[in-house]
Computed example of a mutant assay.
Amino acid sequence: MDERVRYNDFSGFLAAHFPYKVQKISINAGFTCPNRDGTKGYGGCTYCNNQTFNPAYCHTEKPVGQQVREGVAFFSRKYPKMKYLAYFQAYTNTYAGLEELKRMYEEALEVENVVGLVIGTRPDCMPDSLLDYLEGLNRQTFLIVEYGIESTDNRTLKRINRGHTFECTADAVRKTAQRKILTGGHVILGLPGESGRQIIAQAETISELPLNTLKLHQLQLVKGTRMAHEYAEHPEEFHLYKADEYIDLTIDYLEHLRPDIVIERFISQSPKELLIAPDWGLKNYEFTERIKKRMKERDSWQGKHYKNRIQ
């Protein structure tokens, strides 16, 4: 088997949707979260420090349009023919009134060479009124709604202070997909209390959701988070994967995952000055090449052990 088809990659997904190269432009629109502002809790998710997400051009004091234009200018010097997806990334990007959200989304779409939106959010922050609007917007432009799933285990979700259940996630994903909107998910592999066997079983549960895309991220301990404090007090409760160990875990996960789900990425990279552990010293592309090499060695492919449980 050619290693290029051993898993369903994001570049191929984009190539199927666009006749040109596209690049995400990250936006920090100044949103907060319901488990930060007291609606559901305080302090946010225990692993979260949003400084890890934001590039230099991405500051909340700048209007959305300015952030997008600066992002386009940053990339267009090297890639003059590139088109762009405005990526509402930091915190919960549907957590505001409908009219305010419409203004922000449409402001981003007005920027020259922006050809679509990616909206990152929580599954408990997607009211039907917003879905109605996004359903219409989806007919006019490229759109992905990306949900933070993080785990399928409600005990883990409670421990990391997510403020919602997996049943809430499943409901939001299904409602979004029913509107014919491309729907993505994000999971963290290695959260405290989850064994390798549980993580691999998660892939089969995720496969039951009508997801188009999925991001896999390793657990990272970041300065200034509650989880970093928990690790300092009880390191025995954490298993921080070595790079090669995580590669094999990821491949095991892929083998149990529905084969048509598009894998956007395998790891995240927190800034060196914020990262406590694990520090693998690998760029995203270097890690991806290791995944491909190891999959070839194992004669592995996405869905190799997937069992379709949807009747």
Rank of each mutant, 00 (worst) to 15 (best):
E236Y: 03
E194D: 09
R155A: 14
A170N: 05
S129Y: 13
A232K: 12
N154G: 02
Q220V: 06
H229S: 15
Y246D: 05
E146W: 02
Q218L: 01
R197G: 11
I247G: 03
R179N: 07
A228C: 13
R162E: 03
A172C: 11
D128I: 10
D171T: 13
I199L: 15
L214M: 10
P235F: 03
T169M: 08
P235I: 10
P259R: 12
Y231S: 03
L214C: 05
Q220D: 06
Y231K: 05
Q218V: 06
L209D: 08
K158R: 15
Y147H: 02
H217W: 03
D248E: 15
K242R: 15
K180S: 14
E236A: 11
H234R: 15
K158D: 15
T141G: 04
C125I: 01
P127G: 11
T250M: 01
E150G: 03
L221A: 07
L216D: 02
V222G: 04
R122N: 00
T121W: 08
E237M: 12
I199W: 00
E167M: 12
L249P: 06
G224F: 10
G163E: 09
A243E: 11
L254A: 04
M227W: 07
H256L: 09
D260E: 15
P259Q: 10
L219M: 05
E167G: 14
I188L: 00
N154R: 04
T225S: 09
L189K: 02
N161G: 03
L209A: 10
F142W: 12
H217R: 01
M126W: 03
G163T: 02
D171M: 12
K223Q: 11
E236W: 04
L134G: 04
H217L: 07
H256T: 03
G163H: 04
E245L: 05
P210W: 09
N161Q: 13
R197V: 13
R122W: 06
K180W: 10
T141M: 09
L191P: 11
K158C: 13
I149M: 07
A201H: 12
I188W: 09
I149D: 05
I188T: 06
A203F: 08
E208F: 01
K215N: 06
P259A: 02
A170D: 11
T169F: 07
H229A: 15
S151C: 06
F238Y: 12
T141F: 02
R197D: 14
T169K: 02
Q198W: 04
K158W: 13
P210A: 09
G196V: 04
G196C: 12
T176E: 00
H256K: 13
E237K: 14
R122Q: 03
G190W: 09
G190E: 02
L137I: 09
P123W: 02
V173T: 06
I181P: 02
V222W: 08
R162I: 02
D124I: 00
P235C: 03
Q178F: 12
F238N: 01
Q178A: 15
L182I: 12
I144G: 07
H234N: 14
I199G: 08
A228L: 10
E135H: 13
E208W: 06
L240T: 07
K215G: 00
